[in-house]
């Protein structure tokens, strides 16, 4: 579904991502893991078209989208749920959801809001409240639901576990598995390597802007040396 080759991202003279190549198969959860500042979010933002792409190609469903603007990419089927605190805090929960469906017809948006409120009933209860007044976990749910409102072929998720209590993290990850079972393709960026490897089928370990290890999540988890060297799990 997604095929990225030799992706380079540079902010002025600072190169944040070097020669990253990765693939995401339809219906899979693929994770990008690695320490803070490794360039994981830059990769997602380059896919979304909001980070400066220096070189490389991004092919999505057979189309090269690397020259498209951010909103064209959303139309093409790539939506991002940025990390939780990036909801539109001053706008209501419902308005956040509506804007997530900005590029969809109005009738579909209404139906989808109903669906999101079934996934996360709290979003219905707090529909009229300012998104900024929600708890961290609720904001994360809103960010994911808002991403889904675009009905993306590929959902990009940036650090859904960031700053959340373990129980909430569990809930979010179980939800992601449910989404995958319903056929949603997900590219997941996580610092929380153990959780991410548990739900993903394939993983890339990013360090200093490049891929240092990649493989099936199950095998990476079994490899003690990788755990110690890159994941800090041992």
């Amino acid at each position: 579904m997604l095929r990225v080759r030799d992706l380079q991202v540079a902010y002025g003279p600072v190169i944040a991502v070097k020669n990253v190549s990765l693939d995401v198969a339809s219906g899979a959860i693929v994770s990008l893991i690695g320490p803070n500042g490794a360039g994981k979010s830059s990769i997602l933002n380059a896919l979304s078209g909001v980070a400066p792409l220096k070189s490389g190609s991004i092919v999505f469903n057979g189309r090269d989208i690397s020259r498209m603007s951010a909103h064209q990419r959303v139309s093409a089927g790539i939506a991002q749920a940025p990390e939780g605190r990036r909801v539109l805090a001053g706008m209501s929960v419902r308005e956040n959801l509506e804007l997530g469906g900005y590029r969809r017809p109005a009738k579909e948006v209404r139906e989808n809001i109903g669906k999101m409120e079934e996934y996360f009933p709290v979003l219905r209860q707090k529909s009229k409240m300012a998104a900024g007044s929600l708890s961290g976990g609720e904001q994360q749910m809103l960010a994911i639901a808002r991403g889904l409102m675009a009905r993306p072929g590929l959902l990009l998720l940036d650090e859904p576990s960031l700053g959340l209590a373990p129980l909430v993290v569990r809930f979010i990850f179980e939800f992601l598995e449910r989404l995958r079972d319903e056929g949603q393709t997900i590219l997941l960026v996580e610092q929380n390597a153990r959780e991410a490897m548990e739900i993903s089928s394939y993983a890339y370990v990013i360090e200093s802007g490049r891929i240092v290890v990649e493989g099936a999540s199950r095998e990476l988890r079994r490899d003690a040396a990788i755990e110690r060297a890159y994941l800090g799990l041992a």
Binding site: A70, S75, L88, L99, R103
Partner: peptide, 15 residues
């Protein structure tokens, strides 16, 4: 209003 709050978030939403 979305652009007023955060231009980057607005772009991510396809605005």
């Amino acid at each position: 209003r979305a652009v007023a709050e955060s231009e980057t978030t607005a772009r991510l939403l396809g605005i």
